[in-house]
Design a protein around this nucleic acid. Sequence first.
DNA 1: CGATCCGTATGACATCTGTCATCCGGCGGT
DNA 2: ACCGCCGGATGACAGATGTCATACGGATCG
Lengths: 204, 204
Amino acid sequence: MTSSIKVLLAEDQSMVREALAALLGLEDDIEVVAQVARGDEVLAAVGAHGVDVALLDIEMPGCTGIEAAARVHREHPGVKLVVLTTFGRPGYLRSAMEAGADAFLVKDAPAAQLAEAIRKVLAGERVIDPTLAAAALAEGANPLTEREREVLRAAADGSTNAELARTLHLSQGTVRNYLSTAIQKLAVRNRAEAVRTAREKGWL
Amino acid sequence: MTSSIKVLLAEDQSMVREALAALLGLEDDIEVVAQVARGDEVLAAVGAHGVDVALLDIEMPGCTGIEAAARVHREHPGVKLVVLTTFGRPGYLRSAMEAGADAFLVKDAPAAQLAEAIRKVLAGERVIDPTLAAAALAEGANPLTEREREVLRAAADGSTNAELARTLHLSQGTVRNYLSTAIQKLAVRNRAEAVRTAREKGWL
DNA sequence: CGATCCGTATGACATCTGTCATCCGGCGGT
DNA sequence: ACCGCCGGATGACAGATGTCATACGGATCG
């Protein structure tokens, strides 16, 4: 090849990040030119290193890999984006695609798919698990409104209605109403289940 | 050296597992002789490959890395055990040590510590993050009884009292009593918070 | 043997949660 | 101009949840 593919690695757990770097280091057409541990460091690193492909974990401090992807997509439209995640949540796939991702991989896929995906996106292909794609389409869009999501997110840690009302500057009754409609939309029977299924679908 | 260290790698996410294998492959005194993706496959693999060190993730299907560690410790006392986890929960450290682990590493420690830990445990040393060790000691033992833990675990997904009573073969009142005492022991104000803090401490 | 803890259970009570009907103002379509 | 949806709110009601006192049998420890 004329020159190797320059890759940025964004992943907060250093052991995993460096292990992935070691893995990619075995491929002689791929070079890891930068590593970051936070979502909010991705954009600067992409700018600084003339990266061809950014490999982004979703769960990161600073900002999520999906947000980071959106920013890179806006500022550096030529950079290819591979989103890598522990959780194969259909909602994540959807948001990743909306953020401009070129590939979506789950961490329990075989390691060989990683280098392969990097080469494919550089060739202009998109890489998505077909099963996950089907699930994302079958499930439909997030039915929750922004406010309902916020309340649900705030309720996730077990806060009581009174606390939620205080922190969100709402009346206690309104909090109950939002939670009630969220519970109905998600077809579950209480807030705990609502939080659970919203999380599972990647809607939270 | 005379011969390389034989390592078993147990981790459910193949991408991470194979990446760690690549990382360890860079060390010329270490050889990954077996890889498994489930906790309940660890014991057999250890027996089959004459493993020197078993590297165990905690969160795995089949059984947890801690349970796997306990079994290996019982059946093959000579095998050194390194427990690796995403979550630096003091309760995990405690249980890992009780299960006979020789090292406890969190995945956001630098990758270099992994090979280092493997060599150290083989030399008879123990490897523990001092900060985490202090936290584990400071926090004290798990105050929950076995039954309280079970009920809390079952309640974690948002099941109602009636459902819990059915699945655990208890009266509804008894379920409430257990949850109530758990809530008081954890000094929180409802079951959701109880689940949350018990999880955080690694007590669940 | 008594003290203490655990598992299990009941009943009564207070509070929290979830539902429903209803209302208001604002904003985006048609 | 009107309809429908969203954010926000109230009040009433039923059911779920959390607390407390109390009880009994078994285990364990002194």
